[in-house]
Amino acid sequence: MWSRVRRAGSVMALALPCLLAVTQSAHAGLGGAPMTPPADSSVSSRTVQLGTSPATAAQSVMRSASSAASSVPAATSYTVRETTLGNGTVVREYLAADGSVFGLAWRGPQMPDLNDLLGSYFPQYVAGVKAVRAARGGGHGPVAVDQGSLVVRSGGHMGAFNGQAWLPPALPAGVSGSDIQ
């Protein structure tokens, strides 16, 4: 009996590092600080001037978050920080002048960990998903949760997931939910 327990303990000790390595935890939180990217990810940032078109904003030069924050007046811009996870999923964080995350967008072959991305808003999101699914009779599929202080849209299929989340009260002046892409 003890040999089985030791063998099971050994198997768990060997399996745990593998399980931890597979997990793509981003450690971010909507409404809080930007994520700490996993070691196998790449990060870039750009500053978006309020009042510019999305096409113009997309052409802006990529800069580090710190230099972008210091080179543009806080009242006229926000920062978009893009992290490409090791699994190919891209997460965009929309940062206000104070550095807090007011919006998120994701796309890629795997869903990011929404518990990490939504942070303290995750329970509100789960409750919203349950309400949406109960109203339509269950099932899976795209979800749109709009609870006034939190909006989350998530959908896709195996190999191609996408979504957006934002905090309407935290959107900077001149920014709308449609800017979170």
Rank of each mutant, 00 (worst) to 15 (best):
V101P: 03
G159K: 00
V175K: 05
G31W: 02
G148W: 12
V175D: 07
A74I: 05
Y125C: 06
V175F: 08
S60Q: 14
P54Y: 04
G159E: 00
V132C: 05
A58G: 05
E82S: 15
S3W: 14
V126M: 12
V72H: 06
G88H: 04
V132A: 06
D179I: 07
T56K: 13
A21L: 12
G138C: 11
C18G: 13
G29P: 03
G29I: 02
R107I: 11
S64G: 11
S64I: 07
A134R: 05
S60H: 13
V175W: 01
A134W: 03
A144E: 15
R7W: 12
A165Y: 01
A96W: 10
L20C: 07
G141N: 06
S44L: 06
S10T: 14
L150P: 04
A69K: 12
P38R: 03
H157C: 09
N162M: 12
F102C: 12
V132G: 07
S178C: 01
L20D: 00
N115C: 08
F102V: 13
R136M: 08
G108D: 03
L117D: 00
Q110G: 02
G29N: 03
S176E: 14
A173N: 09
Q110L: 15
S178Y: 06
V80T: 10
S10H: 13
V43Y: 01
S70Y: 10
A135Y: 04
S77L: 01
Y78P: 00
